[in-house]
Design a binder for these strands. Structure first.
Lengths: 116, 116
DNA sequence: TAGATATATAAGTGTATTATTATATAAGTA
DNA sequence: TACTTATATAATAATACACTTATATATCTA
């Protein structure tokens, strides 16, 4: 971890809990290599759209991800300005690449233009 | 994070969830500088003994901490052989030192001989 | 403007988590 | 051996969490 600043222990625990969910952790890992919209995550996780919206909202509330609208789509990306971003990189570097999930979408023709 | 091995994403999420609790995260931070027994954590957190036992058991189940009996006491310490230990160090280095908690116990005369 | 698409929010439900109380086990001591 | 201390385990209750369904909002397009 490059970051040397000290973070309140309770605040940090909340970040760890936030990342301690398989779906959210995978979302963040995917966003580390590709910005993405909600609809793609819905396909990837085979879950409902509100479930994904709720996960990304939690990530956004803590400043881990940010959003930008492009037409109808809202593109999510990692917030590199977050005070947790350096720590996040420590987490992500030990996780297996999730690129295959986007590749699978591509094969099925479910890749959305907004996220290419 | 020094560790370069890739860890299953779900498994890693479970470790993050495990650490994503204020009490457990503080326990681990304290153990990083002092081995400790359950009774001291009970004093520090002003909670019940079973609550602490359950927290350390969860940490032990995942191999984050290990125990060794010394008479009536069971001394807990970080398990440096854990595959998560290098990552744990990344987490702990950004947390404020918790030594003052043990100092307070000392002042109150509640420091247990086993943990000196 | 009406309909379609993408996303967000609200309400409700089932499950997981954490704490408590009560009890069991294990070691030390009189 | 009886009593005390330290810890673990079991049962239970309160709370938190993640999902679902239903609905609202925002943008695009015919």
């Amino acid at each position: 971890m490059q970051q040397e600043s000290v973070i309140e222990i309770e605040e940090f625990a909340n970040i760890l809990k936030l990342l301690g969910d398989k779906t959210r952790l995978t979302i963040v890992k995917i966003l580390d290599s590709h910005d993405c919209c909600v609809c793609e995550f819905v396909e990837i996780f085979k879950t409902s759209q509100p479930a994904i919206s709720q996960h990304v909202r939690k990530l956004k509330d803590k400043g881990i991800v940010k959003e930008s609208r492009r037409g109808q789509w809202i593109i999510y990306s990692l917030n590199k300005e977050s005070e947790y971003y350096p720590f996040l990189q420590d987490v992500l570097k030990s996780l297996p690449d999730q690129g295959y999930r986007l590749d699978e979408l591509e094969k099925q023709g479910l890749r959305i233009s907004c996220c290419e």
